[in-house]
Design a protein around this nucleic acid. Sequence first.
DNA 1: GCCGTTTTCGGCCCGACTGTTTTCAGTCG
Length: 589
Amino acid sequence: MSNLEVAKLFRDVAAAFTIKNEYKYKFQILAYQKAADSIEHSSTELKTLYEQGKLEKIPGIGPTIEKRLIELFKTGKVKHFEQAFEGISPAVFPLLDIPSFGPKKANKLVTHFKLNNPKTIIEDVRKLATEGKIAKLEGFGEKSQADILRAIEEYKTGTTKTNRMTLPYAFSLAQEVIAYLKKHKDISKAETLGSLRRMNSTIGDVDIAVTTKHPESVLDYFVAFPAKERIIERGPTTASLLIGGGKHVDLLVLPPQQFGSLLQHFTGSKHHNVALREYSLKKHMSLSERGIKLLDKKGSPLVEFDTEEKFYKYLGMDWIPPEIRENQGEIEAAIKHQLPDLIELKDIKGDLHIHTNYSWNSSHDYGSASMEDMIKRAKELKYEYIGLSDHNPSISNQTKSEIYSVLSRRKEKIEQLKKSNKNIRVINMLELDILTLGGVAIDDKGLELVDAVIVSIHSSFSTNKDDMTKRVLKGLSHPKTKILAHPTGRLLNSRAGYSLDWEKLFDFCVKNNKALEINAWPERLDLTDALVKQAKEAGVKFVINTDSHAVSHMDNMFYGVSVARRGWAEKKDILNTLPAKSFVEWIST
DNA sequence: GCCGTTTTCGGCCCGACTGTTTTCAGTCG
């Protein structure tokens, strides 16, 4: 059973408790939802933790839920859950996947119309709505019947929440909306919030905050946004639009004196906010997007904040960078004034994963720009060094001596470039395939013709964890291999990546002075933020690379730096912040 | 059912919006 399946089961359990008695089970419901959230966000499979007897390492899993999970993995079911589901039609649960359906609404429809088939339930409800039967039910009406119909249509056509957006897509959508908003004369400030401000690897909704003295007219203007599909909601301080492709854009409007708490609240994450509020409650302060209520002094006015810095300071803590607001220890660190000094884009002094159009019967794709053009861009970016790391020449249709000869010709060209570019260090590198049977695609004699290599997996993704780990460690063992590129192999929204024994890999990297790449390509963002944090704690060093195949790709460095920041990485953790001399020393020894 | 920088008992985030009501229930983030 995968983490997502367990999380869904827990949410169904919470829904079942909600239907049975929301008040009696209030805190069990909360506990199962919290556990589901945390299981979804876990970077380790629960099954693995179960096998290692480490289930209690997941926050939100205590002794009782641990017992239930052990029963689940042992027998495939949980007695206690079956009791919880007793008397509730299984047809309720598929409905919960449709936005606007919660446990109460779903159960009311299912019981009243005696619907019991989970396979046909969505079609059954759609039919009832079409026939006008739902409007007659108490608590429903014509409007909600129409809403149900539309929600089902949007769900079936995939208009709602299918794929999450990649960062560049979300940024350009946000920029488009902000550019539109800025045309309104009463808007003084507009900023993106939510997961986009936290630089999450994928974005669900785009949240934009605006401060103005004329909220009415701003909201009117916003909901008239030309590219909208429809208005989802519109109140006095917020509005939400559905944009083509099933994306939401939410606007939040508050007066300038409350802008600080507004930013804080809608930047999230939800887990960060809940933890922050629980902490503050113990200090008798109640937090919201409008400010802070002091619970000790009755009738005292709301304390307002125009900046986020003042808001956090009032709570007795340092301002927390948005990227690490995930309730992963940042609140405790902010109280103790021990927040990490996160790496910044300006710290980066070189890019080592650069593909060019150098043509030589390659094993994989070429870049579109010349070595000269990529070097020129690196200089514009004020880099001190650049690694030219084309894919290794194909080994399937060239003899060894042919390979030595092409490598040597490329070396000559790069030596020329080194000489003609005195103010940047050009490093002769390769991105080298780790073969299916371990080992790398080019032998020792060939590797003498390059300064250093990046290794990566480009084949046999389904290899099991133990074999894949052996394969990767063997690939990293050669003295010339310094960096493991895109270590998980994932592609956002399309490929999960392969399995690796991360603890083993981290340990190997620390002992053998190898680095893990943080690949800045927006569909990769690989390592993941969670693994960066774990690796950093194990003492692993990183290199942030763009994996550029065109000049413009070199600007993606920003996304890689964001992943590093989300993983709590500091300048000292990232090797390509080193000055040229020290970096070249590391990579060539 | 979880959890601990005033707690191993006694707490558990907070408000927005919609639709169906005429003061509230449900859902969402």
